[in-house]
Amino acid sequence: MRPKLANRLVFVFALLGAGISAYLTAAHLNPALLTCGPIVQGCDEVAAHATSRGFGIAGLESVPTAAFGLLMYLWVAALSFVRVASAALDRIARLLQAATAVAAVGVSAWLTYLEAFVIRAWCQWCIASAALTVLILLAIALERPERAGELAESHT
């Protein structure tokens, strides 16, 4: 995949993820906002589980887990922007994106495992977010390395 296309996809996926995370963060502040369905109906159960607040870590309960997702997606989107805005930072920004995406897929896999085997309920928003982290990682991984300087060259 050409770097330009890969970076555009990563940017759009990250913004979509940020939108979902922002919604879930808002829903934690006001649970009445949380809507589920039509395919799955377990959002309330997932949202009520300890891991939906600060990953279930003591001391972090006041911060919704979705807020960490929001920060992650905004960080990835910002790095995409850096890649097109600065030739010098293209390579390091891509590396940071790749590292973030690997960590995000790992965390999403753990949260999905919790949905499947611990909470035994599914939330469509969490599934969508997990899918987006995978798509971001795929777009980064499928970018052709030999064309990695293309973005920077195009505007210098």
Binding site: K4, R8, F11, V12, L15, A18, G19, A22, Y23, A26, L29, N30, L33, A77, S80, F81, V84, A85, L151, S154, H155
Partner: peptide, 25 residues
């Protein structure tokens, strides 16, 4: 043009999020 495209996408995304979330909150 790529920076302009990204900026445009970002503006659209911010507007969409604002339209969806602000009335809810």
């Amino acid at each position: 043009g790529e920076v302009k495209l990204f900026a445009a996408i970002l503006v659209v995304a911010i507007i969409l999020v604002a339209v969806a979330l602000v009335p809810m909150l």
